[in-house]
Amino acid sequence: MPVNFIVSNIIVSVGVFFLLVGSIGLIRLPDFYSRTHAVGKSDTLGIILVVLGLVVHEGLSLNSVKLVMIMVFVGLTGPTATHALAKAAFRFGLRPWFRSDSADGTHEGEDHVDSESVGHEDEMDGGLGLDVEACAGLLRGDPDGDDDDEEGGGPACPLKRKEP
């Protein structure tokens, strides 16, 4: 068994480990902003390591130069795409997860009322992650969302259409 096959085997195994960690993190982490860590860092490192192992296996040729180009491209674009998505989510009004939200349902004591209201908002939310108080009219099924207190202060609903 040649030595470059062993070295590439080790590097590819480490890269596959990081890819697996990224996938599990995408499942297990509590909210969107923490899931972006799993995709932005762990996946990028895993892909770079797997392709590096394949470069070691391939040797010195035009194909390995192209593989190095893929490594550089993934290292540039993976975190950039994740950052753009996270910034869009922040502008959209998606709130980060706090410990007091207790999304897993194991709330006790004075956290009870807080998590009750959060669960109610999530139910009303319809799976979009909107700012619920600003979008209350829209989420209740009113197409214009102009039933209450929209000209006052407070955040504007991002889905609400303004008249031109």
Binding site: S23, L26, V39, L85, A88, A89, G127, L128, G129
Partner: peptide, 13 residues
């Protein structure tokens, strides 16, 4: 995924 952004993140991964 609970939000739209989670679905897009999963698709990117």
């Amino acid at each position: 995924g609970p939000t739209l952004f989670d679905r897009m993140l999963g698709a990117g991964a």
